Simulated scan of single mutants.
Amino acid sequence: MRPLWRCRGCGAPWPCQPARLALLAEYRHDRVGLLVYLGALMTEAGAQLTRLHGRPADLHERFLGWARGRGGTMFHVNHEPGAEIHHTDPFAVPTGQRSPVRRLRGRLAAPVTLWTAPGPAGLTVSSTLVAEGEPDRLLGLIDPESDLWAAVEESGRFAVTPLGPPHRQLADRFAGLFPAPGGLFATGDWVETSYGPVPADGGGWAGCRLDTAREYGWGLLVEATIEAVELAEESVPLLHYRGRYHELPA
């Protein structure tokens, strides 16, 4: 989020932990390319942040230092040969620098859902709420700069699928935390609907018509009318709690 250079998803200074992991996956075979890309962003961020607060002292470490690792070795997300493995997360924000509001949000367990739209486009969302009424409504907070929002804004409709424990990797893929060679929809079985593709092994889905959207905090609050509901067998939900996936005990 320019010019503050904070992540729209978590509010932490960018590149935050999820952004770093995604960058390492994207540039896993091109260390020089990653450093050049980060160097260009560091220059841009330095100019914008200096105008706001004066030049930050930690820009080099924030944008470049984490990508080098000890001894000039790149960190890797999948522990390839030659990678340096850590028992602790090398990208974690120090406890004293963590936002108390973000920590509060992390303590609220939330269902993990997949939003998709014609295009196709998709995004993992853990802030979905259903409101019964006449008509029935659905609300959620999403990234306003995501491909999903561009597709929803253009088509005026989208599908919402509750995810279960077998969908952990799918959730990470659509959250940008797991590599997606060939595109987000290249793997897995999908059912085409007029609201967007939905996972064939999902517990069901809801087709929604976009009503309104407005900036809310660092996200975009989307309000929609539920026009269709397809439910399969009841399944165990996938929950997001304190930065990790969880499932209900049997």
Rank of each mutant, 00 (worst) to 15 (best):
P3Q: 12
W5R: 01
C7A: 12
G9F: 03
C10Q: 14
C10N: 14
P15Y: 07
P18F: 04
R28V: 09
D30E: 14
R31T: 14
V32M: 14
L35S: 08
L41P: 01
M42K: 13
L52C: 07
R55M: 11
R55Q: 12
G69F: 11
T73S: 01
N78Y: 15
P81D: 11
I85L: 14
P90M: 09
P90E: 04
A92F: 06
R102N: 15
R103C: 10
R107N: 15
L108H: 13
P111I: 03
L114G: 01
G119Y: 12
V125Y: 03
T128K: 00
G140E: 00
I142M: 11
D143L: 10
S146C: 03
S146D: 02
L148Y: 11
V152F: 01
V152N: 02
S155H: 15
P162Y: 03
L163Q: 03
G164A: 11
P165V: 06
R168S: 06
P179D: 08
G183R: 12
L184V: 01
L184C: 06
L184G: 07
D189K: 14
W190A: 10
Y195M: 07
Y195C: 07
P199D: 13
P199N: 04
G203M: 05
G204I: 13
W205D: 02
G207K: 02
L210N: 00
L210H: 04
D211T: 09
R214V: 09
Y216F: 15
L220R: 08
V222C: 01
T225K: 05
E227D: 12
E233W: 00
L238K: 03
Y241H: 15
A250M: 00
